[in-house]
């Protein structure tokens, strides 16, 4: 295996163990955004950090197989679209951003109408967007590094 494809065995093993937990935690923060601290943005950042960890530990090929640069861009746009659609859904009830879905009982997971849906859309968008930014910055550097190595 070539040097570039990731870090040492220790890092890889630990990453394998915690990656699922990080993803679960991120999804939890997104889903419970209307009940506890956190929400779409915070959960999305955690998810993106999970991807970044995979990228760092296993190298770019592994991470990009799960979510490519093109993939981040598509998810980014689709999630933004979903958020806008939720906002437009309010027109059913009369105004933009109106909470048309039944609010349910407070302090239950299925409650608060469109807010959990909006949180999910934001979570996906933020995760895709942040990881996309990371890839864009890193790959730009990697694309140049062979020349640099020649110079050295």
């Amino acid at each position: 295996m070539n040097q570039r494809s990731g870090m040492t065995l220790i890092v890889k093993t630990i990453t394998r163990m915690v990656a699922a937990f990080i993803a679960t935690y991120g999804i939890y923060i997104v889903l419970y955004g209307h009940l506890t601290p956190g929400g779409g943005f915070a959960g999305g950042v955690i998810l993106a950090c999970g991807f970044v960890l995979l990228f760092l530990a296993f190298g770019k090929d592994f991470a990009l197989e799960i979510l490519s640069q093109r993939g981040t861009s598509i998810w980014d746009c689709l999630a933004a679209f979903a958020f806008l659609a939720i906002a437009l859904l309010g027109y059913i009830g009369g105004t933009f951003f109106y909470n048309v879905i039944a609010k349910g009982e407070p302090f239950h997971l299925v409650s608060a109408g469109i807010i959990p849906l909006a949180n999910i859309a934001i979570g996906i968008k933020v995760a895709a967007c942040l990881f996309g930014v990371f890839i864009a910055l890193v790959l730009f550097r990697m694309a140049r590094s062979p020349e640099e190595m020649e110079e050295e």
């Binding site: 980014d76 746009c77 933004a80 679209f81 806008l84």
Partner: peptide
């Protein structure tokens, strides 16, 4: 909303 939606669709 309209330009925003179009902006997300175009990429």
């Amino acid at each position: 909303a309209v330009p925003l939606g179009a902006a997300f669709m175009l990429p």
